[in-house]
């Protein structure tokens, strides 16, 4: 069993001082340690973005893939070896824009993977363009007069797509975030955590103060789908006045590995019989 120090690397993360990704990194390592994960049996899969650099800062196995494609990559890893703990971590542009197709299908598949969305409502790495989750009215490089088009809704989208675990958290609340990460990793199935993450360089609306002010810990019954829907839509109905943080929804059904047969067995069988069948 590994302790938190075992997940450390000497490398300093290349993020702006104050970036919410530092909190996420600390939270992930803490959750891994608390769950007693082993470094060699854990794989952190990311895409491309500021947050996508995270596998380099955790000493486990990792795959830093393509922008938007971390979910199918993670599924491939999980199907090939279901004994591994596979955690996907990526940005809002990565997951909701470029990877939007994979995003909603992965809820249907329900692989036993945890997925943490580094949701900073902006494109950090590419210097501040509009993201699908940018709030209406926010001024960005590509919308200098303010974003006109309503934001994408990752949490309602997850629920509509058949999610079995959806949670929200804020990277400024380490304790809460670690708890959400732990529950997500422990959940049998695809567990999605929308992490509100301040980007101190490109987003001066959704700041630490903003999330501290609007976020509140929800204590609704997460097995109640109607209630979950209500909570999922609350930020949009209240124009982000009230943002529930916590497990929004949870239930269990078979995982993708169980449904389509993950690959446990190494034996290679003969094909003589298959050739005979073709005669």
């Amino acid at each position: 069993m590994a302790g938190i120090l075992d997940f450390n690397v000497p490398e300093k993360p290349q993020w702006c001082p104050g970036c919410g990704d530092f909190g996420i990194l600390a939270g992930v390592k803490k959750a891994f340690a608390e769950l007693g994960l082993e470094t060699h049996n854990t794989v952190v899969v990311s895409g491309i973005g500021c947050g996508g650099k995270i596998p380099h800062y955790i000493r486990t196995y990792g795959y830093e893939g393509l922008h938007g494609r971390l979910l199918p990559l993670a599924i491939g890893i999980k199907l090939a070896n279901p004994d591994l703990t596979v955690v996907g971590i990526g940005g809002d542009g990565d997951g909701i824009a470029e990877g939007g197709n994979h995003f909603h299908h992965t809820f249907r598949y329900n692989p036993d993977i945890a997925y943490f969305l580094q949701d900073n409502q902006v494109y950090g790495l590419t210097t501040g363009q509009t993201s699908p989750t940018s709030h209406k009215g926010m001024r960005t490089k590509t919308n200098p007069d303010g974003v006109k088009i309503p934001e994408a809704k990752p949490v309602p989208l997850a629920l509509a797509s058949g999610a079995t675990f959806v949670a929200t958290t804020f990277s400024g609340n380490l304790k809460h975030m670690v708890e959400m990460f732990r529950l997500a990793i422990q959940h049998k199935g695809f567990a999605f955590v929308d992490v509100y993450q301040p980007c101190v360089t490109w987003n001066n609306i959704n700041t630490y103060e903003y999330w501290s002010k609007h976020g509140y810990i929800t204590d609704h019954d997460p097995t109640d789908f109607k209630k979950a829907l209500e909570k999922a839509y609350e930020p949009y109905f209240t124009n982000w006045e009230k943002v529930p943080l916590g497990v929004i929804y949870k239930y269990e059904r078979n995982t993708m590995e169980e449904e389509i047969g993950a690959n446990k067995e190494e034996t290679i069988r003969d094909i003589e019989e298959d050739l005979k069948e073709l005669m």
Partner: peptide, 22 residues
């Protein structure tokens, strides 16, 4: 493990992931 994915991008990435995992 035969997977009909949501698109070819997913198929390609899934295959890479599986190879990475051995």
């Amino acid at each position: 493990t035969v997977v009909q994915t949501e698109d070819e991008i997913a198929a390609a990435n899934l295959a890479v992931g599986a190879n990475f995992a051995g």
